[in-house]
Protein backbone atom coordinates (compact mmCIF):
# COMPACT_ATOMS: atom_id res chain seq x y z
CA UNK A 1 0.00 0.00 0.00
CA UNK A 2 1.18 3.50 -0.71
CA UNK A 3 -1.62 5.52 0.83
CA UNK A 4 0.84 7.83 2.56
CA UNK A 5 4.49 8.61 1.96
CA UNK A 6 5.95 11.04 4.47
CA UNK A 7 8.78 13.44 3.70
CA UNK A 8 11.54 13.54 6.32
CA UNK A 9 13.89 16.54 6.08
CA UNK A 10 17.34 15.15 5.44
CA UNK A 11 19.18 17.38 7.91
CA UNK A 12 16.79 16.84 10.83
CA UNK A 13 17.96 13.93 13.02
CA UNK A 14 14.76 13.86 15.07
CA UNK A 15 12.42 13.26 12.14
CA UNK A 16 14.77 10.90 10.33
CA UNK A 17 15.00 8.66 13.37
CA UNK A 18 11.41 8.85 14.56
CA UNK A 19 9.33 9.41 11.41
CA UNK A 20 8.52 5.72 11.01
CA UNK A 21 6.81 5.63 14.41
CA UNK A 22 3.90 7.53 12.91
CA UNK A 23 3.37 4.53 10.63
CA UNK A 24 2.91 6.02 7.20
CA UNK A 25 3.03 3.41 4.42
CA UNK A 26 6.27 4.94 3.14
CA UNK A 27 9.07 7.31 4.10
CA UNK A 28 10.86 9.72 1.80
CA UNK A 29 14.27 10.77 3.12
CA UNK A 30 14.56 14.18 1.50
CA UNK A 31 17.90 15.47 0.27
CA UNK A 32 16.32 17.98 -2.11
CA UNK A 33 13.94 20.78 -1.17
CA UNK A 34 14.09 20.23 2.60
CA UNK A 35 17.85 20.80 2.67
CA UNK A 36 19.57 24.11 1.91
CA UNK A 37 22.41 24.11 -0.60
CA UNK A 38 25.12 24.59 2.01
CA UNK A 39 23.89 21.63 4.06
CA UNK A 40 23.57 19.09 1.25
CA UNK A 41 26.84 17.43 2.27
CA UNK A 42 25.92 17.09 5.95
CA UNK A 43 22.41 15.87 5.17
CA UNK A 44 23.72 13.26 2.75
CA UNK A 45 26.03 11.80 5.37
CA UNK A 46 23.33 11.84 8.03
CA UNK A 47 20.77 10.15 5.79
CA UNK A 48 23.30 7.54 4.66
CA UNK A 49 24.19 6.65 8.22
CA UNK A 50 20.62 6.61 9.52
CA UNK A 51 19.48 4.43 6.61
CA UNK A 52 22.37 2.03 7.17
CA UNK A 53 21.89 1.54 10.88
CA UNK A 54 18.24 1.95 11.86
CA UNK A 55 15.05 0.05 11.26
CA UNK A 56 11.87 1.64 9.99
CA UNK A 57 9.08 -0.70 10.97
CA UNK A 58 7.01 -1.74 7.96
CA UNK A 59 7.55 1.49 6.01
CA UNK A 60 8.68 1.47 2.39
CA UNK A 61 11.94 3.45 2.31
CA UNK A 62 12.86 5.85 -0.47
CA UNK A 63 15.16 8.85 -0.88
CA UNK A 64 14.43 12.01 -2.83
CA UNK A 65 17.72 12.85 -4.48
CA UNK A 66 18.53 16.20 -6.03
CA UNK A 67 17.53 16.77 -9.66
CA UNK A 68 19.76 15.52 -12.47
CA UNK A 69 20.64 19.06 -13.50
CA UNK A 70 22.37 19.76 -10.17
CA UNK A 71 25.87 19.02 -8.90
CA UNK A 72 24.51 16.90 -6.05
CA UNK A 73 22.66 13.92 -7.49
CA UNK A 74 25.60 11.63 -8.17
CA UNK A 75 26.93 11.97 -4.63
CA UNK A 76 23.36 11.47 -3.37
CA UNK A 77 23.14 8.17 -5.23
CA UNK A 78 26.51 7.02 -3.94
CA UNK A 79 25.28 7.57 -0.43
CA UNK A 80 22.01 5.73 -1.09
CA UNK A 81 23.89 2.85 -2.69
CA UNK A 82 26.18 2.51 0.31
CA UNK A 83 23.17 2.52 2.64
CA UNK A 84 21.27 -0.02 0.57
CA UNK A 85 24.27 -2.35 0.59
CA UNK A 86 23.84 -2.60 4.35
CA UNK A 87 20.06 -2.18 4.54
CA UNK A 88 18.20 -3.87 1.68
CA UNK A 89 14.98 -2.14 2.71
CA UNK A 90 16.33 1.04 1.08
CA UNK A 91 15.06 0.65 -2.47
CA UNK A 92 13.20 3.75 -3.63
CA UNK A 93 14.56 6.74 -5.51
CA UNK A 94 12.28 9.73 -5.81
CA UNK A 95 13.39 11.69 -8.87
CA UNK A 96 12.48 15.37 -8.89
CA UNK A 97 11.92 17.26 -12.14
CA UNK A 98 11.62 14.17 -14.30
CA UNK A 99 11.36 15.87 -17.70
CA UNK A 100 11.96 13.25 -20.33
CA UNK A 101 12.39 9.59 -20.95
CA UNK A 102 16.08 10.27 -21.65
CA UNK A 103 16.65 11.55 -18.13
CA UNK A 104 14.91 8.52 -16.67
CA UNK A 105 17.12 6.25 -18.77
CA UNK A 106 20.19 8.15 -17.55
CA UNK A 107 19.09 7.58 -13.98
CA UNK A 108 18.31 3.95 -14.73
CA UNK A 109 21.85 3.41 -16.08
CA UNK A 110 23.43 5.06 -13.04
CA UNK A 111 21.31 2.90 -10.77
CA UNK A 112 22.47 -0.24 -12.59
CA UNK A 113 26.08 0.76 -11.96
CA UNK A 114 25.24 1.47 -8.36
CA UNK A 115 23.70 -1.96 -7.94
CA UNK A 116 26.83 -3.58 -9.41
CA UNK A 117 29.14 -1.59 -7.24
CA UNK A 118 27.22 -2.42 -4.07
CA UNK A 119 26.51 -6.08 -4.87
CA UNK A 120 22.79 -5.47 -5.07
CA UNK A 121 20.53 -7.41 -7.42
CA UNK A 122 19.84 -5.69 -10.72
CA UNK A 123 16.53 -3.89 -10.56
CA UNK A 124 16.76 -3.43 -6.79
CA UNK A 125 16.10 0.30 -7.00
CA UNK A 126 12.69 1.60 -8.07
CA UNK A 127 12.02 5.09 -9.36
CA UNK A 128 9.23 7.47 -8.38
CA UNK A 129 8.98 10.28 -10.94
CA UNK A 130 7.98 13.76 -9.90
CA UNK A 131 6.41 15.59 -12.83
CA UNK A 132 6.96 19.26 -12.15
CA UNK A 133 6.38 21.03 -15.44
CA UNK A 134 3.80 21.15 -18.20
CA UNK A 135 6.33 19.44 -20.47
CA UNK A 136 6.76 16.59 -18.00
CA UNK A 137 3.03 16.10 -17.57
CA UNK A 138 2.56 16.05 -21.34
CA UNK A 139 5.21 13.31 -21.58
CA UNK A 140 3.94 11.41 -18.53
CA UNK A 141 3.34 8.10 -20.36
CA UNK A 142 6.77 8.15 -22.01
CA UNK A 143 8.44 8.92 -18.73
CA UNK A 144 6.52 6.17 -16.94
CA UNK A 145 7.46 3.59 -19.55
CA UNK A 146 11.07 4.72 -20.03
CA UNK A 147 12.33 2.15 -17.55
CA UNK A 148 11.05 -0.95 -15.75
CA UNK A 149 12.20 0.68 -12.53
CA UNK A 150 9.51 3.37 -12.69
CA UNK A 151 6.93 2.47 -10.09
CA UNK A 152 5.08 5.70 -9.42
CA UNK A 153 4.16 9.11 -10.83
CA UNK A 154 3.48 12.21 -8.76
CA UNK A 155 2.50 15.71 -9.86
CA UNK A 156 4.60 18.55 -8.49
CA UNK A 157 2.69 21.24 -6.65
CA UNK A 158 4.21 24.68 -6.47
CA UNK A 159 6.62 24.31 -9.39
CA UNK A 160 3.90 22.98 -11.61
CA UNK A 161 1.50 25.82 -10.88
CA UNK A 162 4.25 28.32 -11.69
CA UNK A 163 5.01 26.55 -14.94
CA UNK A 164 1.37 26.72 -15.91
CA UNK A 165 1.62 30.46 -15.32
CA UNK A 166 -0.84 30.46 -12.47
CA UNK A 167 -0.70 30.20 -8.70
CA UNK A 168 -1.66 27.38 -6.38
CA UNK A 169 -5.15 28.08 -5.09
CA UNK A 170 -6.75 26.51 -2.04
CA UNK A 171 -9.04 24.19 -4.06
CA UNK A 172 -6.25 23.62 -6.60
CA UNK A 173 -8.65 23.71 -9.57
CA UNK A 174 -5.67 24.60 -11.78
CA UNK A 175 -4.19 21.17 -11.09
CA UNK A 176 -7.40 19.30 -11.76
CA UNK A 177 -6.69 18.36 -15.35
CA UNK A 178 -3.05 17.66 -14.53
CA UNK A 179 -4.11 15.08 -11.98
CA UNK A 180 -6.47 13.37 -14.36
CA UNK A 181 -3.90 13.30 -17.10
CA UNK A 182 -1.24 11.80 -14.86
CA UNK A 183 -3.75 9.29 -13.55
CA UNK A 184 -4.54 8.04 -17.06
CA UNK A 185 -0.88 7.95 -18.06
CA UNK A 186 0.04 6.08 -14.91
CA UNK A 187 -2.67 3.48 -15.33
CA UNK A 188 -1.82 3.01 -18.97
CA UNK A 189 1.81 2.48 -18.01
CA UNK A 190 0.89 0.20 -15.10
CA UNK A 191 2.44 2.30 -12.34
CA UNK A 192 1.10 3.80 -9.10
CA UNK A 193 -0.23 7.32 -9.12
CA UNK A 194 0.46 9.31 -5.97
CA UNK A 195 -0.75 12.83 -5.34
CA UNK A 196 1.33 15.80 -4.17
CA UNK A 197 1.34 16.84 -0.52
CA UNK A 198 -1.27 19.19 0.88
CA UNK A 199 0.73 22.20 2.01
CA UNK A 200 -1.67 23.65 4.61
CA UNK A 201 -0.54 21.46 7.48
CA UNK A 202 -3.08 22.66 10.02
CA UNK A 203 -6.07 22.44 7.69
CA UNK A 204 -7.10 18.83 8.19
CA UNK A 205 -10.61 19.44 6.83
CA UNK A 206 -9.16 20.74 3.57
CA UNK A 207 -6.82 17.75 3.45
CA UNK A 208 -9.73 15.36 3.89
CA UNK A 209 -11.70 16.98 1.08
CA UNK A 210 -8.78 16.92 -1.29
CA UNK A 211 -7.96 13.32 -0.44
CA UNK A 212 -11.57 12.23 -1.01
CA UNK A 213 -11.42 13.91 -4.41
CA UNK A 214 -8.22 12.25 -5.53
CA UNK A 215 -9.29 8.89 -4.21
CA UNK A 216 -12.39 9.12 -6.32
CA UNK A 217 -10.22 9.90 -9.35
CA UNK A 218 -8.40 6.65 -8.71
CA UNK A 219 -5.18 7.79 -7.03
CA UNK A 220 -3.31 5.29 -4.85
CA UNK A 221 -2.17 7.70 -2.19
CA UNK A 222 -0.67 11.03 -1.27
CA UNK A 223 2.57 12.59 -0.05
CA UNK A 224 2.64 13.73 3.57
CA UNK A 225 4.45 16.68 5.11
CA UNK A 226 3.42 16.32 8.76
CA UNK A 227 2.47 13.32 10.91
CA UNK A 228 -0.98 14.76 11.67
CA UNK A 229 -1.89 14.25 8.00
CA UNK A 230 -1.37 10.48 8.07
CA UNK A 231 -4.49 9.40 9.95
CA UNK A 232 -6.74 11.68 7.88
CA UNK A 233 -5.52 10.16 4.62
CA UNK A 234 -5.65 6.60 5.94
CA UNK A 235 -9.23 7.12 7.07
CA UNK A 236 -10.24 8.29 3.59
CA UNK A 237 -8.61 5.26 2.01
CA UNK A 238 -10.14 2.86 4.48
CA UNK A 239 -13.17 1.26 2.84
CA UNK A 240 -16.59 1.56 4.41
CA UNK A 241 -18.22 -1.41 6.08
CA UNK A 242 -20.55 -1.83 3.10
CA UNK A 243 -17.63 -1.84 0.65
CA UNK A 244 -15.80 -4.38 2.78
CA UNK A 245 -18.80 -6.63 2.98
CA UNK A 246 -19.38 -6.48 -0.76
CA UNK A 247 -15.71 -7.16 -1.48
CA UNK A 248 -15.76 -10.16 0.81
CA UNK A 249 -18.69 -11.59 -1.12
CA UNK A 250 -16.94 -11.05 -4.45
CA UNK A 251 -13.71 -12.63 -3.27
CA UNK A 252 -15.53 -15.59 -1.75
CA UNK A 253 -17.60 -16.09 -4.89
CA UNK A 254 -14.43 -16.07 -6.97
CA UNK A 255 -12.78 -18.66 -4.74
CA UNK A 256 -15.93 -20.82 -4.85
CA UNK A 257 -16.02 -20.65 -8.62
CA UNK A 258 -12.37 -21.68 -8.87
CA UNK A 259 -12.97 -24.57 -6.50
CA UNK A 260 -15.87 -25.82 -8.59
CA UNK A 261 -13.92 -25.40 -11.80
CA UNK A 262 -16.33 -22.77 -13.05
CA UNK A 263 -15.08 -20.03 -15.35
CA UNK A 264 -17.67 -17.38 -14.62
CA UNK A 265 -18.16 -15.73 -11.25
CA UNK A 266 -21.54 -14.39 -10.24
CA UNK A 267 -22.32 -12.08 -7.33
CA UNK A 268 -25.84 -10.87 -6.63
CA UNK A 269 -26.94 -12.33 -9.92
CA UNK A 270 -24.41 -10.38 -11.96
CA UNK A 271 -21.24 -11.61 -13.62
CA UNK A 272 -18.04 -10.12 -12.24
CA UNK A 273 -14.82 -10.28 -14.19
CA UNK A 274 -11.15 -10.29 -13.22
CA UNK A 275 -10.60 -6.53 -12.81
CA UNK A 276 -13.54 -6.34 -10.41
CA UNK A 277 -12.24 -9.28 -8.40
CA UNK A 278 -8.79 -7.72 -8.27
CA UNK A 279 -10.27 -4.45 -7.09
CA UNK A 280 -12.18 -6.28 -4.37
CA UNK A 281 -9.00 -7.94 -3.14
CA UNK A 282 -7.18 -4.58 -3.12
CA UNK A 283 -10.02 -3.07 -1.12
CA UNK A 284 -9.71 -5.79 1.48
CA UNK A 285 -6.00 -5.06 1.74
CA UNK A 286 -6.80 -1.40 2.30
CA UNK A 287 -9.13 -2.49 5.06
CA UNK A 288 -6.27 -4.36 6.69
CA UNK A 289 -7.73 -7.79 5.91
CA UNK A 290 -5.92 -10.66 4.34
CA UNK A 291 -7.87 -11.59 1.17
CA UNK A 292 -6.90 -15.25 1.45
CA UNK A 293 -7.92 -15.47 5.08
CA UNK A 294 -11.17 -13.72 4.28
CA UNK A 295 -12.10 -16.50 1.95
CA UNK A 296 -11.85 -19.16 4.62
Amino acid sequence: MRRTMMYLPGNNPNMLLKGYLFRPDGLIFDLEDAVSANQKDAARILVRNVLSSQSFGDCEVSVRINALDTEFWRDDLCAVGAAAAINRRVNGIRMPKAESKESVIALDDTLSELEDKNSLPQGHFKIFCLLESANAVWKAYDIATASRRVTGLTPGGEDLAADLRTTRSREESELDWIRKMILVAGRAAGVDVLDAAYPLIHDLEGLKKQTEGIRQLGFDGKSVLHPSQIQVIHDVFTPSATDIEKSLRIVRAAAEATKNGQGAVAVDGRLVDVPVIKRAMYLLTLAGLDAEEAVL
Binding site: P13, L17, I45, R48, N49, V50
Partner: peptide
Protein backbone atom coordinates in the same frame (compact mmCIF):
# COMPACT_ATOMS: atom_id res chain seq x y z
CA UNK B 1 22.40 9.46 19.30
CA UNK B 2 25.70 7.91 18.28
CA UNK B 3 24.71 7.70 14.59
CA UNK B 4 24.03 11.45 14.58
CA UNK B 5 27.32 12.27 16.32
CA UNK B 6 29.22 10.16 13.81
CA UNK B 7 27.46 11.88 10.91
CA UNK B 8 28.17 15.37 12.19
CA UNK B 9 31.80 14.47 12.87
CA UNK B 10 32.22 13.12 9.35
CA UNK B 11 30.58 16.19 7.84
CA UNK B 12 32.74 18.55 9.90
CA UNK B 13 35.90 16.64 8.95
CA UNK B 14 34.90 16.72 5.28
Amino acid sequence: LDVVLRSRLEAAIL
